[in-house]
Design a protein around this nucleic acid. Structure first.
Lengths: 143, 143
DNA sequence: GTTCTTAACTTGAACGGTTCCAGAAAGTTG
DNA sequence: CAACTTTCTGGAACCGTTCAAGTTAAGAAC
């Protein structure tokens, strides 16, 4: 978990102005992996008081475009954000409760970019989502 | 491409009533792989005249739940439907124009279900999306 | 420090895909 | 053919997200 100073350095390093909403939003995502926008809005408001929803959307977009956050959008879910970027990990998602867990890429560090046939496409990312049931939902189901 | 009779057999085989909107919608998806809902609505209306949007949504949901269609929902896109089911193929999506191509699973017939660590999840599907640029967009870019 | 410029934030409204609801219509069973 | 469901229609609502115009504040230059 980065300190406040490190969060600021991340922002400056990405040529982004250091503002309270950005610090708060970036910190919130580090604290809540795979958080959806509304969760981040709440966290930011807990920190700073009133902040507009649009400001948070703007901040999240700016941070995502700068590469400080990664936006994921699993089918049937709203957008979620995570702070692990550029490490090529994948996700494990529970069909019942939507819980998300990280999994390192099975293929290693620079993985999965090899499709069996590429149809002339230039591939830059392979996104893998493992769908299933989380331990909690499995336990609840068997009761 | 299945004939009209085969489409009807598909419906009956799934214990679904055979209705005009269902036949038209299922045929439309076979003809337009990865079509979004609005495209299917247009195709159905071309066939049958006026059909409500909600009817098409209902039909698509029924067909999807029956396993006759598969719904895909790539990030940043609306829902799309395809008629290839249960053959475990994946998708290649163009970041600029949204074009989608099918790719067979690199790992074979029953593939990819092995995450490096499963966190106690019971995994039933691995969805892979290869992101990149299609040949057309690559060509347009280099001009 | 003050001023200036530009990016960021606020407020309010709109948008688009999707779903919900109640009632009418049509397919299926006996 | 009659009864019973399921499906389809029409209309409205919902929700996450985006757009637009104006105000505020961060960072750079003087």
């Amino acid at each position: 978990m980065p300190t406040a100073v490190e969060i600021e350095e991340l922002l400056r390093g990405a040529d982004l102005r250091v503002t309270q909403p950005r610090i708060a939003a970036l910190t919130a995502v580090h604290q809540h992996p795979h958080a959806e926008t509304s969760t981040i809005v709440e966290a930011v408001r807990t920190d700073l008081g009133e902040v507009s929803v649009q400001a948070v959307y703007d901040v999240l977009r700016a941070l995502t475009e700068a590469g400080l956050l990664r936006r994921i959008e699993p089918a049937g879910s709203v957008a979620r954000y995570e702070s692990r970027v550029d490490d090529n990990h994948h996700h494990l998602i529970c069909r019942s409760c939507g819980a998300i867990a990280d999994v390192d890429c099975a293929a290693g560090a620079t993985p999965c970019l090899t499709a069996s046939e590429n149809h002339g496409f230039e591939i830059d990312e392979a996104e893998v989502i493992y769908w299933g049931r989380c331990p909690e939902c499995l336990a609840a189901q068997s009761n």
